[in-house]
Amino acid sequence: MKVISGKPESLTDKKYHYCPGCMHGVIHRLVAEVIDELGLREETVGVASVGCSVLSHNYFNLDMQEAAHGRAPAVATGIKRVLPDRTVFTYQGDGDLASIGSAEILHAAARGENITVIFVNNSCYGMTGGQMAPTTLPGQLTSTTPLGRDVKKEGYPLRMSEVLATMDATAYIARTSTHNAKHVMKTKKAILNAFKAQQQGQGFSMVEVLSTCPTNWKMKPVEALQWVENNMMKYFPLQEFKKVSGGDQ
């Protein structure tokens, strides 16, 4: 009997703690599949961040460090500078990466740190109860913008992929989504490209993955997926912003 689908080796048997309809589990799996396919599990060090994915080290079956809030790119820099031949990735949410960790992500990208960043954007702070994030859409209701995000008071969302793509030292920057199977597969392809860029020493790579937060958005899982397509994708267009050609790719 041929196994046509199974759990990737880079995932543990631990059951996810994520809410129903949250896409973290899917994105974890995509990262794990890519690491498996590239045969990198035993030479990879992952960095977990603070947010809903704070426990991602329970799920990735490889060496992991848990970083302080926002500091994952700095921690990854420290690891990569000691172990330049290992694969190093961070797994960060939008509050972690785009708000409290904005300095760390910008400078890791500016330095061209040869690491891969998986950036999960669900437009709110999930873990702490759905507060406004730097990615919250104009008008979006959150627990700290009960009347909707007012751009006059709270400003506009940050488009991190667009910002990082302008930097000389970034090698691969893409935004993808997980709202349907087709886009899940596109996301996997982007993650593969990002890890390959690191393997080839091209520099900083990041995949921004649009995700859901049905619990805090107060939606059913399917509605949440539709909301990503109808609202988030308008503000955060899906695109491969930067792909440095080179190596054997």
Binding site: Q65, A67, R71, A74, V75, G78, V82, E104
Partner: peptide, 16 residues
């Protein structure tokens, strides 16, 4: 880029 980043780089490196 900052003291905050520096000490967290130390964390990553020390962890290896």
């Amino acid at each position: 880029e900052s003291e905050v980043a520096a000490i967290n780089m130390v964390y990553g490196a020390a962890g290896t």
